[in-house]
């Protein structure tokens, strides 16, 4: 196993009651550059290490942005890190969304819950070079309006770019004026040519399955539906065996892969 490299927390922004976005900068030498969809192993001193996808890549200062939801001991410790403190980072690991391969296609970016985090750099990169792609659709599902990540940024995508941006929530509050329902309900109002579309889907596994099946039904080729999977990971270097999913090692062959490969694996219970 490689040894983590120290990074410094330079920014901490609360996203929701249990989720924060932290910006990291190398304390010394930087790791090789990350691509959208890849993940880092983040080490909270003395507590442990977990895989976290990059939710932002700051190419200018070799910085990394991660959105962390406090659900366990390590993620809780990482969530609690404030500017000035250190975190150990290993990476980059895994496959990426491969946005360059989607050139000339309509883009359909479908996120559920914290699944928006790994997709954010794809949206940012796609909107930075809109001429390279057809129509860009960003569809986001959130539990409540308060749990929606990157609210200001989504507002910017919606108003200041040509992208079709739609957000839907499961449980609206009194102030919510947007859509109410599941994210797949947004698909029929998105603008895309099924045969000329690349879809990027991330969220809880049942949401991924429902979305991918819907897209296949609408005529998007399975291999052009890219999904990001999650399994237990200890090493991220293919040596610990934990992230196996049938023939795949998710740390190495994933986390991003085509629905044509993912579908039969996710269809087998307890694989």
């Amino acid at each position: 196993m490689t040894t983590p490299v120290p990074y410094e927390v330079v920014r901490w922004e609360s996203e929701t009651a249990d989720t924060a976005t932290v910006a990291l900068r190398p304390a010394g030498a930087a790791l090789p550059s990350f691509r959208p969809g890849q993940f880092a192993m983040l080490y909270a001193f003395g507590v442990g290490e977990i895989p976290v996808s990059v939710s932002g890549i700051s190419r200018a200062d070799q910085g990394l942005v991660h959105t962390i939801r406090a659900v366990g001991a390590v993620s809780g410790a990482l969530y609690g890190l404030r500017p000035g403190t250190s975190v150990g980072v290993r990476g980059p690991f895994g496959t990426d969304w491969d946005l360059p391969a989607a050139r000339g296609h309509d883009l359909l970016i479908v996120a559920g819950g914290i699944g928006l985090a790994p997709l954010r750099p794809v949206v940012v990169d796609a909107l930075a070079e809109p001429d390279r792609y057809g129509r860009v659709n960003v569809l986001v599902g959130s539990r409540t309006p308060d749990e929606l990540l990157y609210r200001a940024e989504i507002g910017h995508w919606s108003t200041a770019t040509a992208a079709h941006v739609a957000v839907t929530v499961d449980r609206p509050d009194d102030r919510w004026t947007g859509e109410v329902g599941v994210v797949t309900a947004l698909l029929h109002r998105a603008r895309f040519r099924p045969h000329g579309t690349v879809a990027f889907v991330c969220g809880p596994e049942p949401m991924i399955r429902a979305t991918a099946r819907d897209l296949v039904h609408r005529g998007v080729p399975a291999q052009r539906i890219r999904v990001s999977l999650e399994r237990n990971m200890r090493c991220a270097t293919g040596h610990c065996g934990h992230c196996q999913l049938g023939p795949l090692l998710v740390c190495r062959d994933g986390p991003v892969l085509g629905w044509d490969r993912a579908e039969p694996l996710l269809a087998t219970r307890e694989l």
């Binding site: 559920g112 699944g115 809880p204």
Partner: peptide
């Protein structure tokens, strides 16, 4: 309630 406190998300 997939996006709820447990059982949600891609990478935590």
């Amino acid at each position: 309630d997939l996006y709820g406190p447990s059982g949600s998300g891609s990478m935590p």
